[in-house]
Simulated scan of single mutants.
Amino acid sequence: MNRILAVTRLHTVVWWNQFIWPWAIMAISLLVNILIFASIDEAAPGKTSTGGLSSLYVVSAIAAAVSISQIFPFALGMGVTRRTFYVATVLVNVAQAILYGVLLYILNLIEGGTNGFGIGLHFFRVPYIDVSNGLLQIAVYAAPLLFLNFVTMFVAIWFVRFGTNGLFATGAAAILVFGLLGALITWQGWWGDIWHWLSTQHQISLLVGWPALVAVVAALGGMAAMRKKMAPGMA
């Protein structure tokens, strides 16, 4: 366990990518949204919800994928096993998601206490993802981050293992499978049933449960792929 905790410190090598840039870009997005909505508030009262918060998730997911290509070769050069590196990386991402969830919840409270930064802006308190329970709100912020990070990490590991051709071939196969599945659903007229099933799902199931489940599957898939022989230069 001490070895794993020691390896987590390797992520400080790319701490700007993983911990600074996501918040910096989100802060810029928040500032831009405040300026835009402050200027149109009188013309469009009440229409102050924005998806700018997604910038944090997108940048974090990209940074998670980049960390595989930047830190993994360095870790191997220091004699770190694939399993140790991956478990340490998972721990870093879980801790990151919890920390981000807490910080976003604090910003949620600030936004609520200032009436949306004085202009009724819904940046952190976006309708539907805003819940009344504090712990659940933290989970609502954290689960999608884990989902995106582990999925992009899995893609990065797949790329490192099989190269560009393998990644594109997998993407083409996925498009084919989902395309055929979509055609089957359309042919059978199942879209209405699927939509009904989704609409009857509990809010927390959609925001926390399902993203967390996919995150676990992606994390296990990444572990399986990581433990196999990697591409030349990454073994």
Rank of each mutant, 00 (worst) to 15 (best):
M1E: 09
R3A: 13
R3N: 15
A6G: 03
R9C: 01
L10Y: 07
H11G: 02
T12E: 09
W15C: 07
I20Y: 06
W21I: 11
W23A: 07
A24Q: 03
I25A: 08
L30S: 10
L31S: 12
V32C: 15
I36D: 08
A38G: 09
I40T: 12
I40W: 03
D41N: 05
D41I: 05
A43T: 02
S54Q: 05
L56Y: 08
V59R: 10
A63K: 04
A65Q: 12
I68Q: 05
Q70I: 07
Q70M: 13
I71S: 07
I71T: 10
G77V: 05
G77I: 07
M78S: 06
M78K: 15
G79I: 08
V80D: 08
T81L: 14
R82E: 10
T84F: 09
V87Q: 11
T89L: 14
V92F: 12
A95S: 12
Q96N: 14
I98P: 00
G101R: 01
V102H: 04
L103A: 11
L104M: 13
Y105N: 06
L107K: 10
L109K: 07
L109Q: 09
L109I: 12
G116I: 01
I119P: 05
I119L: 09
G120N: 04
H122F: 07
R125Q: 14
R125C: 14
V126A: 02
V126C: 01
P127N: 04
P127Y: 11
V131K: 01
S132C: 02
S132A: 11
S132K: 05
N133A: 15
G134I: 01
L135G: 12
L136Q: 02
Q137H: 06
I138M: 02
A142V: 02
A142E: 05
A143M: 06
A143W: 00
L145A: 10
F147L: 08
F150P: 02
V151R: 03
T152K: 05
T152F: 14
M153G: 00
F154D: 00
W158P: 00
V160I: 06
T164H: 00
T164D: 01
A169T: 12
T170M: 15
G171T: 13
A173L: 14
A174M: 15
I175E: 04
I175C: 14
L176Y: 07
V177G: 09
F178N: 08
G179R: 06
L181S: 12
L181F: 14
G182Y: 11
W191A: 04
D193Q: 06
D193Y: 02
W195F: 09
W197K: 05
L198A: 13
S199T: 08
S199W: 11
Q203P: 04
S205G: 02
L206Q: 00
L207R: 00
V208F: 00
W210I: 09
W210T: 03
P211M: 06
P211H: 00
L213K: 04
V214K: 03
V216S: 10
V216C: 08
A218S: 06
A218G: 05
A219E: 08
A219Y: 07
A219C: 15
G222E: 11
G222K: 04
M223K: 07
A225M: 14
M226C: 13
M230I: 10
A231Q: 13
G233D: 08
G233Q: 15
A235S: 15
